[in-house]
Design a protein around this nucleic acid. Structure first.
Lengths: 226, 226
DNA sequence: GACGAGATATGAGAATTTTGATCGTGGAAG
DNA sequence: CTTCCACGATCAAAATTCTCATATCTCGTC
């Protein structure tokens, strides 16, 4: 995945580059609009990150040219506060999203993923499996040998976490961080409640897989009967 | 709020500094352990962000010295992956938290807020006010001239957003970003529903303040009768 | 083996959030 | 001045999440 950043503020460009590299993207940075257009038209990028205000040629102009060339590459515009009117113009010209400065790296990453997703360049998530379980996380439901049942979001996230961690025991703290965010004041009992919900559904599906309690430690998925 | 970063990796230090400044903290950066200790002991910082691996003097050593001086300043340790054992040692020596690299800016900010909260050096959030409204966001309730009513979390976040933005019109998109996260697929109608909830409560409180609809644009708070 | 403390499980109900349907309204188009 | 339609408001019901009380289990201790 290769991303082009066109941004004249050196500091911001550097910060962006760092963030993206940390997330395993290849990054090229260009500081002015004319160069930006040249790079953009090269066609080697999987996503363009364009500042709107730029020396030489503004981001929207780059966007227009790129689209005029028939390129479908996802584009995210960076806008300073108070540039909201530009937002509309940008989206009209085929931007996939805009991000208002200042933004968090999480936000940026999520928007990048979202933009790529929208373009159909999806990262094909394989169904999550463990033993006889098959979890469809996007439209949460759980299947065991053909029989299926709907999960609600929290149940789904919990099961996903347990499946991803395989044999590793997952502590309640870890579960709380994932499901409620580490800031939260969620109680241990909340975890117990959702474990209980899941067990009920596993039972309904007559699954061989169980959620085992490791007293004082956490929970693990276990296959086969005990 | 003044924060000291002791981190030898220039890039990371710069990124951290950016993030913190964006969040309205004053930041000083030091790249080596000995200097770090000197700065830390100056006592002017509200929080220390210490890398564990450092040239000169490691983060845990700095932490120990600081605590030995009787300083209660919140400390967050930065650890590389696989330094988990250090984590325990650090927490034993009086660190308030540790953050494993790589981390998101959101995570860092949240941990910083949490660390400060824990130390009781709370940012005394002045009650949010607008016109005759007084919003207590932590234990969500809304007061108008003595009369008060409980808000649920989403109502409170919505009103908080509207108050913080004062005269500025807030779009539904912005509201969705704040209340549900911009990743979400929440509908515009969700916003309308919560606006409706709030209006009902404003009405109940006989407030002079109204949530005005700017058709096609968003919502604003307005004081006084029309 | 009996006992007690802490940890875990579960059911029921309350609170909150989300969905869907329906009704109203402002403003552009004619 | 009408008509029409996208946008917005509201209500009721469904779904989900959270809370609380109570039951059960595990393990160390006597």
């Amino acid at each position: 995945m290769r991303i082009l950043i066109v941004e004249d503020e050196e500091h911001l460009a550097e910060a962006l580059s760092q963030i993206l590299k940390k997330n395993n993207y290849s990054v090229d940075v260009v500081h002015d609009g004319e160069d930006g257009l040249d790079y953009a038209l090269s066609g080697i990028y999987d996503l363009l990150l364009l500042d709107i205000m730029l020396p030489g040629r503004d981001g929207i102009s780059i966007l227009k040219k790129v689209r005029a060339e028939g390129m479908a590459v996802p584009v995210i515009l960076l806008t300073a506060k108070g540039e909201i009117p530009d937002k509309i113009a940008g989206l009209d010209h085929g931007a996939d999203d805009y991000v208002a400065k200042p933004f968090s790296s999480d936000e940026l990453m999520a928007r990048i993923r979202a933009a790529m997703r929208r373009k159909g360049e999806v990262m094909p998530e394989d169904a999550l499996k463990f033993g006889d379980l098959e979890l469809n996380a996007s439209n949460p439901k759980l299947t065991v040998r053909g029989k299926e049942i709907k999960l609600n979001p929290k149940e789904s996230e919990l099961l996903e976490l347990l499946i991803l961690r395989k044999q590793a025991v997952t502590s309640k703290e870890q579960i709380i961080e994932k499901l409620w965010g580490f800031d939260s004041e969620a109680e241990h009992n909340n975890v117990e409640v959702y474990v209980s919900f899941l067990r009920k559904k596993l039972n309904f599906l007559a699954s061989d897989t169980r959620i085992a309690t490791i007293r004082g430690v956490g929970y693990v998925l276990e296959e086969g009967k005990g």
